[in-house]
């Protein structure tokens, strides 16, 4: 059995840093939407997660 962290936010990719402050999750800042999508795509592929949109300028990478 492989053990993995599930149902957990692995990373946050935000355009405005102020909206994703605090907590214990790594926050990545992007300049614009294109960069934000690209960063979150890379992170999702590397971490084996799925990108979700909170519709307030924040993308989170989640493992399910």
């Amino acid at each position: 059995m492989d053990i993995a962290i599930k149902e957990c936010i692995l990373a946050i990719v935000a355009i405005e840093g102020a909206r994703a402050e605090g907590g214990g999750c790594p926050v990545f800042l992007a300049k614009n939407i294109q960069e934000q999508e690209k960063t979150s795509l890379y992170l999702a592929r590397i971490l084996g997660g799925v990108v979700h949109d909170l519709e307030n300028g924040i993308l989170i990478i989640c493992k399910h």
Partner: peptide
């Protein structure tokens, strides 16, 4: 519906990336 994928009136999941 925004980022939420729906089939008729049932929400299936949240998809973050536009390409997806």
């Amino acid at each position: 519906d925004g980022s939420m994928l729906r089939v008729n009136d049932v929400v299936i999941m949240n998809v973050g990336l536009h390409a997806d």
